[in-house]
């Protein structure tokens, strides 16, 4: 049975499950590094997921759907940026409002466009990037099956998340952009003094996080499921925030933590197939990612240090 569980498809599924978390978590990292808390990742992801389906449906192109998802995430991010940077509203409260707004907007538009609540029609999905025929026989066949499933079977946004994790991580610590971003979150007054616009920097960070959360939504609807169901993000935005904290506010760490949550999710899905053997109600499997999130936060938070100016509106003076 163990060999059935620890099969290549488990690890492939872990990478797939990690992707929406990772995209949102990296967005969260960029946003929080600039000093703005973003608990609205959940809502931006949900709205992106929905608008992705709408975009794909009206154009017939999944790629156009990805674009509308990205714009949808950014549009809610603009609200968050305006509220929290320009108006200096409490960032957590503004994020909550956006989460409720996303629930309301997607539910409302669902009924306006489809005439019923629940789930949308199915749309075209993004295809896997690679399609290579390898050996199927013998030892070589087994090795190839692992490589093919784990590394080569994925859709575009899965690879994008990995590229962003590596590239973003490097850029955060090795480029002018990264230095400026970190300065905004650690000591905005100093950044301001040397001529970095705090407002512009924070706006672009919040908008980037919205774009990434929108892409996370697109991954759910346009790569994984093919349709939208109300509330389908199921607190992934909050788990992504936890992944960002566990990853110590770095893109690479965020991806790694997302991979842990993705693996837990993939494992619980897989274990449910063995319900005849493991006699545990399915609800206990479904709980796993949420329980793990609490455990991870409990274990790591005391030692992880958040950006110093996080959550504090900046007043030029």
């Amino acid at each position: 049975m163990l060999a059935d569980i620890l099969a290549p498809d488990l690890f492939a599924s872990a990478i797939r499950m990690a992707t929406p978390l990772a995209l949102a978590a990296i967005g969260g990292t960029i946003c929080e590094r600039s000093g703005v808390v973003n608990i609205a990742l959940e809502g931006m992801m949900l709205f992106g997921a929905f608008m992705g389906v709408i975009g794909a449906m009206f154009t017939g192109s999944a790629w156009f759907g990805v674009l509308t998802a990205l714009v949808a995430g950014m549009s809610l991010a603009l609200v968050h940026a305006f509220a929290s940077v320009t108006l200096r509203t409490d960032q957590v409260v503004s994020g909550t409002a956006i989460n409720i707004l996303a629930t309301g907007l997607t539910g409302f538009l669902m009924e306006v466009i489809f005439g019923h609540p629940g789930t949308t029609d199915s749309v075209a999905r993004l295809r896997p990037v690679f399609s290579i025929n390898g050996p199927t026989e013998g030892m070589l066949g087994t090795v190839w099956r692992w490589i093919d499933l784990v590394a080569l079977s994925h859709t575009p946004l899965v690879y994008l998340a990995i590229i962003l994790a590596i590239g973003g991580h490097w850029a955060l610590f090795n480029t002018r952009w990264g230095l400026r971003l970190r300065a905004l979150g650690e000591h905005p007054r100093a950044a301001d003094t040397v001529g970095i616009s705090v407002v512009r920097g924070r706006y672009s960070a919040v908008l980037t996080s919205g774009a990434l959360a929108g892409l996370a939504g697109a991954n759910l609807t346009l790569e994984q499921v093919g349709s939208f169901t109300e509330g389908m993000t199921n607190a992934r935005g909050f788990i992504a925030l936890a992944a960002n904290i566990f990853g110590r506010w770095t893109p690479g760490g965020s991806y790694g933590a997302s991979l842990l949550f993705g693996f837990a999710d993939a494992l619980q899905i897989k274990l449910q197939l063995f319900r005849e053997v493991i006699r545990v109600p399915s609800q206990f499997f479904l709980m796993v990612p949420y329980v793990l999130t609490v455990i991870v936060l409990a274990g790591v938070v005391g030692r992880a240090v958040a950006p110093a100016a996080i959550g504090k509106p900046y007043v030029k003076g």
């Binding site: 409002a97 956006i98 409720i100 629930t103 539910g107 409302f108 609540p117």
Partner: peptide, 25 residues
């Protein structure tokens, strides 16, 4: 009108109450 519109109104109320600065802005 779909009843879900009340969630939109709810979210907007939160935003406006929280953004007392909005009036000043």
């Amino acid at each position: 009108v779909p009843t879900k519109v009340i969630f939109i109104i709810q979210a907007l109320i939160i935003l406006f109450v929280a953004a007392e600065q909005l009036a000043r802005w």
